[in-house]
């Protein structure tokens, strides 16, 4: 019967709860001092968590099924969300294995029976360990996917600034996925905001290699097909030099060194003027 301990073992554990708990807390504290010394704020929190952890384990020794009533899952989730490391849980479970085995070894001398006890404990504990790892990797995957979405949303924004003028500031490395997004947002935005001029600002792009240049050229061409003008701004001097060395010809595109100069140019093209009223 998976996940269910032999009755005699359960009885033994129940009878020695206090001793087991003390031994377990000792082991966990040694681990915490050694490994988690950096996480001082969460350490204080965790004394209560320790108690809860042990009580839940004891409770589940009497259960058939580790997902029964969901309290174990809830606890793992809670711990991982507090920011305690996964190690705390796995080490805590391993410590439980050790203290229980120590107790049983003291009271049982028959080798055959001892081997059976070891197997029993493993059969009880392994599913719990697996569960912990599963839960934690799910939390991790969820976090990564949320961050990825958030990052993509930020990665190629088209901002309407003045009538018929929009800006796309690009910051960070450009990979294929982002390049696709740049193109999509640019074309959708040009139509949505009726932009006559779009400024692509690459001040924040660390490396402009042939792939990035190619995508920018394609994007600018597509904007031109829609009847609008694309101005490339924010080309740092060192980037200008590497672009030339790569033999990439940007002469057919309007380029300006700074966003400000690009904006002046854009205002000209759209017959607009900034008037100061001092």
């Amino acid at each position: 019967m998976q996940g269910k301990l032999d009755n005699l073992i359960v009885q033994m554990i129940n009878e020695n709860q206090e001793t087991l708990k003390n031994n377990w807390l000792n082991e966990v504290n040694i681990f915490k001092e050694k490994e988690l010394a950096g996480a001082i704020t969460t350490l204080k929190l965790s004394e209560e968590i320790d108690q809860q952890f042990f009580e839940l384990l004891i409770k589940h020794i009497n259960y058939h099924d580790i997902s029964k009533d969901g309290t174990l899952d809830q606890f793992f989730d809670q711990v991982l969300h507090t920011g305690l490391p996964l190690r705390y849980l796995t080490q805590g479970l391993q410590a439980a294995r050790r203290v229980i085995l120590n107790l049983l070894v003291e009271t049982e001398s028959d080798k055959e029976k001892l081997a059976a006890v070891y197997r029993e404990i493993d059969r009880w504990l392994d599913p719990i360990l697996n569960r912990v790892v599963e839960n934690s990797s799910q939390i991790w995957e969820r976090t990564v996917s949320i961050q990825k979405t958030a990052l993509l949303e930020l990665s190629a924004p088209l901002i309407p600034v003045f009538q018929n003028i929009s800006v796309m500031p690009l910051i960070g490395s450009i990979d294929t996925e982002r390049a696709k997004l740049i193109m999509e947002n640019l074309l959708n935005g040009v139509i949505k905001y009726r932009s006559e001029v779009v400024l692509i600002d690459i001040t924040g792009v660390p490396v402009v290699d042939t792939m990035v240049a190619h995508h920018i050229i394609q994007a600018a061409d597509a904007v031109r097909l829609l009847g609008s003008t694309c101005i490339l701004v924010g080309i740092r001097p060192e980037i200008a030099q590497t672009i030339v060395s790569l033999g990439i010809d940007l002469s057919q595109f309007p380029t300006k060194s700074t966003l400000q100069k690009g904006m002046e140019n854009a205002l000209e093209i759209t017959n607009q003027q900034l008037i100061s009223n001092k």
Partner: peptide
Amino acid sequence: GNVDQARITTAISELAR
């Protein structure tokens, strides 16, 4: 310097890609 750093990183980018 800055310019050579840009040349080197760009070259690496090309070869790696």
